[in-house]
Write a protein that binds this DNA or RNA. Structure first.
Lengths: 237, 237
DNA sequence: AAAAAGATTAATGAAAGGTTAATAGGTTAA
DNA sequence: TTAACCTATTAACCTTTCATTAATCTTTTT
């Protein structure tokens, strides 16, 4: 079904375990890059992007702990977990102290590993990936077609600009829920500063204008937090 | 100190383990509610707000798995983990399939438990205050949605300001318990002086006004100490 | 009854938000 | 190459919100 796959970097020096694991994870619909040498990790991370990093600790040319420290500095948003034979309590605690999202002890059951990875990735919903709009959306008495950037009501069409479109898409896919300044700005502008926030106000103002023919629709401000597109329940079922 | 703490509901029937765990977690700065009976879980979750739920599976009056299913439906945003003596693979997989964020086997090292909880909450709640894990709370006949800052009763919606919202969240998270001036002021205002205390009174007054339609709800003053949000038990069992 | 603490309502002012207009940067068309 | 056009950003200006402060009244304590 051509879903986007989650990308995982697996750092493991052991040939046979590395092979088994990467094959197993591939079968389970992950996109795996198997890194056999600790010294290659940073290079791989620089050239490709990943959703998760799985680290062995005992590597012939370096320590997984050291790698984790470097990763944390250069790629602070990349979640990583340890998968290792070192099971002493001190190591476990060190792993978590370094910021690991999990610490798994070998031998690990493959099915459990997959279950844990899913549990992890489910929590980290990458905002970039859920901004897809296939078909038209209903907003009160308006029809919103984000594909074509058109907002329509009783024959009146408004062509939206890119920003207006992105903002309305964001708000309408979180109908009646608070959308924080931060989420909107990071989601659409990619960063959050004073001027973007000013800009956001301008576009909210535009959308309010377009939407003001339906009394049941309001873009409400929640001071210091963000906006809510509130849509009254319409009487038809 | 006097930071706002993460709130955890611990569901554990074993007296001694429950005691040890809740004390240990309290020492580590978590705000723990220990639920001894599986049948009480949903009730507690409905009236108090939590950041995490820890579930035993083998309970005398119900199964942790069943509880998880109900929680998933009614409080889909609340992360939960299993902490159990059942270590069979089938149980582990079932736990994750139900949406658990972790599955821990007894006996668990307390330090590791704390490390894992921190790893989890750091992911769920990146930098600021956690409102993501919040769901709507029941306060008497009112519904309080701290996420969207609204208080509702029989169709009447009141949009709360930031301070009102923070205060009501604090009080309702410590229902029927004394909330000292000091804790509230340090928790919400970040400092405690004469003028903040005056301000606090103003907001208490606002909340009383909003809540005065339900006779069973009162914000009581305890002279020189603080306030209690007291909610009468409703007549149904 | 005096003093202290709390409750309530109202006044104030700074900051946040709203709106419209001007600017600048980029793209298209001629 | 230039002119026309579109759009995001910035600016300017106005309006609203809400935490604080103040003022006044009520309750509790001694």
């Amino acid at each position: 079904m051509a879903e986007i796959k989650y990308r995982i970097a697996l750092v493991e020096d052991d040939e046979s375990l590395g092979y088994v694991l990467s094959e197993y994870l591939k079968i389970n619909d992950f996109d795996i890059t198997w890194v056999k040498k600790g010294s290659k990790v940073m290079e791989v991370l620089t050239t490709e992007s990943f959703d998760l990093l799985i680290l062995d600790i005992t590597l012939p040319d370096s320590s997984g702990f050291d790698i984790a420290e470097m990763v944390k500095v250069k790629f602070p948003k990349l979640p990583f977990l340890f998968l290792t034979a070192r099971s002493m309590k001190i190591d476990v605690l060190k792993g978590f102290a370094l910021g690991a999202v999990d610490y798994l002890k070998k031998p690990i059951d493959e099915e459990e590993l997959v279950a844990r990875i899913h549990a992890l990735l489910n929590r980290v919903v990458p905002p970039a990936r859920n901004l897809n709009a296939e078909h038209s959306l209903q907003i009160g008495s308006y029809t919103f077609d984000p594909q074509n950037q058109v907002l329509e009501r009783s024959g009146n069409r408004t062509r939206l600009t890119e920003r207006e479109n992105a903002l309305l898409l964001y708000l309408s896919s979180h109908k009646n829920q608070l959308c924080t300044h931060n989420d909107i700005l990071n989601g659409i502008w990619g960063k959050n500063d004073y001027f973007n926030k000013k800009s956001l106000n301008v576009f909210v103002s535009h959308l309010r204008k377009y939407l003001n023919e339906d009394q049941g629709i309001r873009i409400e401000n929640i001071r210091n937090r963000g906006f809510v597109l509130s849509v009254a329940e319409n009487p038809n079922s």
